[in-house]
Amino acid sequence: MKKLIITNNPAVKEKFKNVFFIDGSPQDILTKVRDLVHQGHGLISHPLSASLRMMFSPYRTVVLSTKKEQIDFFSAEIIEDSIIKYKNHMNYRKIDNVHSEDYQVIDILLLEAALNEDTGSW
């Protein structure tokens, strides 16, 4: 089962294979994920974090499935909502670059948890 990892976290790029690295912002990651979902990739991990503090993170990593013929509507709705929600937050917040190293570490640990969780190959 090949998964595609979309990330702007250099530490993820170093450690994993099948990484699509984007030298950009979390917003760029979400936009790219959206485009890939529109092309038929499904979301394996949710594009947003589970906590407010992580909204400030300069890094975002999303796991996608391989491309399928049929677009996954569920994934499309989720990425769309996620982008709206993310923008909504960043209207009046700014990315916390002071602690970027720590955010890198947590981002990669959360990614590993997600990869461990997804045992199937659907």
Partner: peptide, 9 residues
Amino acid sequence: PEHTTLGGK
């Protein structure tokens, strides 16, 4: 549990 993966959710 709140999972990170859609499959988990």
